[in-house]
């Protein structure tokens, strides 16, 4: 994990091997219960994971902003007080933050291109699995960066919140443009389309609250997407408890 930091900005470059790749976790995310998935699925996933490293260029980071102010559910950031309309759910969780980190992370276009090529060649099965590996890789990479931020803040006696992203928990995805305007130009090589889609597609972005009163919650309770794979995992974990 190569790191370059200034007072406000931390940027990371990660190799694919630094991320934990868990075929069983991915299989569960695809909807299967333990032992129910076809063996072929595990075999193909393992092959994809062993070939994916050279196709990933993982970059991520965050900007730490201490000047924050709430105007109802709008979070105003920096000297210019750029207002992020995060919505009530995120505002409720982050109201007591003392500072925030705006983050972005991408794995580049390699896996996306590979998946599309497989699908164009008629191998939708492998193409879909490459796409799933790509999605999990960018999430895992961001998790590593979040872990780094958490350790950094723990050393100061502070806690961090969940990652909250535009498009989730009532934060409109159009807010991506404001979020990226607060990050350095061309941060991690991510650009936005007019419809607020990040390119490369396998990218994540959002905000993390920092402060002694921050906590991590399961955001499925706030979301109304009933058929989401993460919800299935959440419901399963609740049953196991």
């Amino acid at each position: 994990m190569i790191r370059s930091t200034t007072a406000e900005i931390a940027e990371f470059s990660l190799s694919f091997d630094e991320i934990e790749h868990d075929p069983a976790g991915l299989i569960a995310l695809l909807g299967y219960r333990d032992g129910e998935a076809p063996e072929l699925l595990r075999t193909v996933l393992e092959e994809i994971i062993s070939d994916a490293g050279d196709r990933c260029h993982i970059r991520g980071g965050y900007r730490h902003i201490s000047e924050i102010e709430w105007r109802e559910t709008d979070l105003c950031l920096g000297r210019d007080k750029m207002a992020l309309a995060t919505g009530k759910i995120i505002a409720d969780e982050l109201q007591r933050a003392e500072s925030v980190a705006l983050f972005a992370c991408t794995i580049g276009t390699g896996l996306e291109t590979w998946s599309k090529r497989l699908m164009n060649d008629g191998d939708f099965f492998a193409g879909y699995l490459v796409d799933a590996v790509a999605s999990l890789t960018v999430e895992s990479a961001m998790q590593k960066i979040q872990d780094y931020l958490e350790r950094e803040q723990q050393d100061k006696g502070l806690r961090i919140s969940n990652c909250y992203s535009p498009g989730n928990c009532g934060w409109p995805v159009t807010e991506q443009h404001k979020l990226f305007s607060l990050l350095p130009d061309n941060f991690c090589g991510i650009t936005l389309t007019d419809s607020s889609l990040m390119l490369p597609i396998k990218s994540v972005s959002g905000i993390i609250g920092i402060g002694p009163a921050m906590r991590k919650v399961n955001t499925c309770q706030f979301c109304d997407m009933k058929r989401c794979v993460y919800r299935r995992r959440f419901e399963k974990s609740k049953q196991e408890i």
Binding site: L30, G31, Y32, A37, P38, L40, L41, G122, D123, F124, F125, Y128, L129
Partner: peptide
């Protein structure tokens, strides 16, 4: 009915094709 998932649907589609 969540008794099969995307990978199985894709394998079925491959056989259908």
């Amino acid at each position: 009915q969540n008794k099969a998932f995307v990978p199985e649907l894709l394998m079925a589609a491959k056989a259908m094709t």
